[in-house]
Structure formats: structure tokens, C-alpha cells
Computed example of a mutant assay.
Amino acid sequence: MEWALRFLGVGNASAVELGSPMAVIERDGRPWLTIDCGGEGLTAYQARYGAMPDALFVTHVHLDHVAGFERLFVDAYFNPGRRGRVRLYVPAPVVPLLHRRVGDYPNVLAEGGANFWDAFQLVVVGEAFWHEGMRLEAFPVRHHWPETAWGLRLQGALVWTGDTRPIPEMLARHADDGELVAHDCGLHGNPSHTGVDDLEREYPAELQARMVLYHYASAADGQALRARGHRVADPGQCVALAEPTAPRALPFQD
């Protein structure tokens, strides 16, 4: 079985040409779990896979990460085979924020009779959740305001930080099994995002060597990050992942 991470978009909220920061964990070349639902990212998803996502993890609700939800709702709600079956894994503190951001609109259909959440299967996430028989971990990161943004770990394969300042204490716990670490990093940091100086100061060389950086401001900034010796993701790039060591569900016995 082959695992990979495909970057649908790698830019910050202003870098439209780089796409909204969104990715897909692939298994044997097929989408397994999508991370976030930005507008440009969802367009890239459709272009790549010829369909809409079946399962998504939501890191936080800034619009470059959730602006595609109206399109996803329409696709799922009007398809009897998908309505109520598109899985949304959402950390518990993020659920009310997501509802206010994308779900709380009077009469989601002009004709009435529909609720935004009718289109989805909402799975509220604590420290971990199960997807297709495999356990994934969620952990809070440092972005904009406490308990509003979360990272994702597929043990042994991938850690996705989402938008964040440096989180060495979290990665000491959630990236201790050789995972590839996809980390927010721009050329310059700010109170909500990591800059390359922050990254190089806060993380040991061994961990930096396992990182691939995204959420930068321009192609030129990406080149500047590479010039400092860092691995930087491009839109559409697919990166091989190790076989996960995450716990797997045992066969159910009645």
C-alpha cells in the first residue's frame, strides 16, 4: 500500500496564484482524507480527481480554509448518493465557529426545507478519531486565538501543522515517529504565522530536515526559503509518505 500527500495549494491568504493551503492524503493514488476546503483548493481538487471530497478534516475557519463549503454543500445535498455521507471531522471547539462561518444562513435553499448540515456527516473530534479503520490525532496549534486552530497527525506518516506559530512542545509529542512534517512557514513571521527565522530558532535540525514548508507569500519567497536550505512545497506537488504506524481497528466480532 502506497501513501502520499498532495498539496492542492500552498500560499497564504493573499497568494491566490499559489492556491489556498489545502492538501489530500492519498492511499494507492486515490484521495483518502482531505485537509480543509478552501476555494482555490477545492477547484484544484476537482481538476485533479474529477469529483468532490468524500471526507475532510477542518483545521480552522479562516476563509482561505473553508470558502469552498458552499460549493461542497450544493454538490452533496443535490446528490442522493452523497447527501448526509460526506464526512466532516471537526475538532470540538471549532464546530460552533464553523457553523457561524459557513452553516448559519437563513434558508440555505431559497425553497426552504433544507439545513446546511443535512449534506454532511459531522464527526466531532477530540484528541483522536477513526477514519477508514485508522486512528488519527488532532492537537491544538498557535494561530490567531487559543483553541481555534488544530493540527493533524497520521502516526508514522504525516504531521500537518495547519496555520501556526512554532509549536515545538506539540511536535515533541506528535512528531516523534519519523513523520513528514508539513509546516506553516513564510519568509517573515507575524503573530499568527511562522517565519523562517522562527522555524530555525525553535526547532532542532533533525526535525527541520523532516519538514516541507507551505503557506508562503509568493513564488519568490518560496525560492528564498529554498535558498536557506529548506524543502518547500509547490502547488500540485505529491510527496511520498512512509507506511503509517497508527493504530488500526480490529475486525468487529459480534
Rank of each mutant, 00 (worst) to 15 (best):
M1V: 04
E2R: 11
W3Y: 15
W3H: 13
L5P: 08
V10E: 10
G11I: 07
A13T: 03
E17F: 01
S20N: 15
I35F: 04
G39P: 01
E40C: 10
E40H: 11
L42H: 14
L42C: 15
Y45V: 07
R48A: 14
R48Y: 08
D54S: 13
H60D: 15
H65C: 05
H65L: 09
A67P: 01
G68C: 02
E70R: 04
L72H: 09
F73P: 00
V74H: 13
A76I: 00
F78K: 04
P80K: 03
G81C: 03
P91V: 09
P91I: 12
P91N: 10
V95T: 07
L97M: 09
R100P: 00
R100D: 14
G103T: 00
N107L: 04
L109M: 11
F116H: 00
F120D: 06
V125L: 08
F139L: 11
H143K: 07
H143R: 02
H144K: 12
W145I: 13
E147A: 13
E147F: 06
E147Y: 09
L158M: 07
R165K: 15
M170G: 08
A172K: 07
H174W: 14
D176C: 12
D176S: 15
E179M: 13
L180A: 08
H183W: 03
H188W: 02
T194Q: 11
V196P: 01
P204I: 06
V212N: 01
H215D: 14
H215W: 01
S218G: 06
A220W: 00
R228Y: 00
G229T: 05
H230S: 05
D234V: 04
V239T: 08
A240F: 02
L241Q: 12
E243D: 08
P247S: 10
Q253P: 00
Q253D: 09
D254R: 14
